[in-house]
Each structure stands twice: as structure tokens, then as C-alpha cells.
Design a protein around this nucleic acid. Structure first.
Lengths: 140, 140
DNA sequence: CTGGTTGCAAAATTTTTGCACTGGT
DNA sequence: ACCAGTGCAAAAATTTTGCAACCAG
């Protein structure tokens, strides 16, 4: 169990119950859309408003606590900021799975951007395909 | 000058003036949001409606004529389907530049997904940073 | 001709905003 | 106690939909 309060304070944000709850929900599910977060969060805290989620997701993104994962054909999901990784995204069910980068990957991205007069800040790699569950479902 | 009419017919779609115009606008700019397309397109064809753009972008995506490029913190842009490549995205001005993949990149992605019971369909790689113009602007 | 396509206007959905009240520090 | 943060409700922005008229094949 991570200390969400500390994460928020480190980012210069007040550790409100709402924020910790949002972080907790994202952390447990891994990747969640705004709607996903809202539906999960109001189970425990029914008065928490959608506006609060919007405001906080934006704020926590600016502060680097959470990261947006935009997805082709679907709404963006959000995850806690963490070690660099790539995403396997199921085009069928929308599931997102993290996969750690191998060192070689790291190297290639640096190379791809260094030739340009382009100052690399961060990268985002999504591999789209069918997860095993959806493959099984299609086979039947 | 590509033959947009042919692209559409190959995809099983009627080659309407509206569709060819949309494709032309995307092609010339490289990457455009729905709003971008609309503003550009009505300069020549003022009665073309936003609804038509939404309907056609979705349809042409399904048919594989255009591809969505979702971008962190901004609206998705759309490009013509083309040879596999990655994107350099400027976090400041939103500019998107294509960069062809080196062979090694190809290889790594295959490897990253093959261990899993994950059936890779397509990939999407965005490198975020500052373009040269925005670097110059910040320096001043 | 004729079925797919368009344009309009209205509806639905998503996101943002203003402001009085609340709660962390 | 102070001010960031919340919740509500309303506004704005975005996207979808239904349908009559239209046009590419």
C-alpha cells in the first residue's frame, strides 16, 4: 500500500480525501477513464462530483502525479506516474496492460529523436491487438 | 498528387466531393484535428457540415483510409494511412512530424508482444518534446 | 434509378466554469 | 484562521442522431 498522502504533498498538493480516493482507485485498476474513476469512487463517496475528478486529474497531471494514456478509438485512460513502460491495449475490450521497457528500446528512442532538433521529454508507446481473453472469445 | 477517388473506391466508399476534399486537406497538412479539417474545408466548400466530417472520419477509419493519432493533452489528429512510422509531437505548439521506423524498431515491437498471449495488430509510438521553433521561442 | 451520402437542426454527451461552502495545514 | 479545494448547477463545447433532399454509380 503506497502512501498517497505523501505523493500529493511531494507534488505540492493538499492531501484531501477525494484525491487520495481517486489515486487509490486508479492504482488498484491500473488504468481508468474519467467515467471509470467516477463510477468506482462514488461507491464509497457518493457526493464526490465529476467536476472534482476533472479538476483533479488535470491538476495531478500538471504536477506529474498521474499520466494520461490516450487510446485510439476510445477515451483516454489515466495511470499513476511510474517507471517507464509501454502499453498493450486490447482493441476489443479496451484492457490496458503495462510492460516494462527493455534497455534496447530506451536506446532506440533516444536515437530516433536526437538527430532532429527535437528535445525529447517523454514517450508513449501503445501496441494494439487482441488480449488472450478476446482471442478466445473470437475463436468460439 | 494522389488519386483520392481511387483510394475511396478501393475502400468501397463512394468518391464524393466532400470526402476527397477532406482527404486532400489532411494530406496537405499531414495531421489535423476535426476542427482543423472543418476550418480548412469550409474555405472552399462553406456548406460542408461538421456532421459530415465526423461521419466520414469514423467511416474512413473503419475502412482504413485514415488513422487516428491520439495525443496527450490535446485532441486527436488524423492522418492518411501510410507506411509505418512514429510521431514526434511538440508539447508546446502541437506540431506532429512523421519519422520512419528503423528496422530494429520493428523487431523490438514484435518481440515485446510475442511473449504474451497478445495478438499484435498495430502500434502507435509518440515521442513528446519541443520542436526547434518552440525551443527557440523559449530561449528568448 | 436508387441506395448511399449530405446538411441541417436538435439531442445527447462530455467538459468547463463560477461561486458559496468546507476542510487541510 | 486562511486559502486551497469541493460540490453543485449552469454554461460551454463536443459529438451523435434523425430525416428530407441529393447525387455518384
Amino acid at each position: 500500500m503506497v502512501n498517497y498522502a505523501q505523493m500529493l504533498k511531494d507534488a505540492g498538493l493538499k492531501a484531501t480525501f477525494q484525491r487520495m480516493h481517486i489515486l487509490n482507485v486508479i492504482d488498484e485498476a491500473g488504468h481508468m477513464s474519467i467515467e471509470d474513476i467516477y463510477e468506482e469512487v462514488i461507491k464509497v463517496h457518493p457526493s464526490l462530483s465529476l467536476a472534482t475528478i476533472y479538476k483533479n486529474i488535470e491538476l495531478m497531471m500538471e504536477k506529474g502525479v498521474v499520466v494520461e494514456v490516450p487510446i485510439v478509438g476510445k477515451k483516454s485512460k489515466y495511470e499513476l506516474a511510474k517507471e517507464d513502460h509501454i502499453h498493450l491495449v486490447c482493441t476489443e475490450c479496451g484492457m490496458v496492460e503495462d510492460k516494462m521497457c527493455v534497455d534496447r528500446t530506451e536506446h532506440i528512442f533516444k536515437e530516433l529523436s536526437k538527430n532532429e532538433s527535437f528535445k525529447l521529454q517523454r514517450r508513449q508507446v501503445n501496441l494494439y491487438g487482441l488480449c488472450s481473453a478476446c482471442q478466445a472469445k473470437q475463436a468460439s
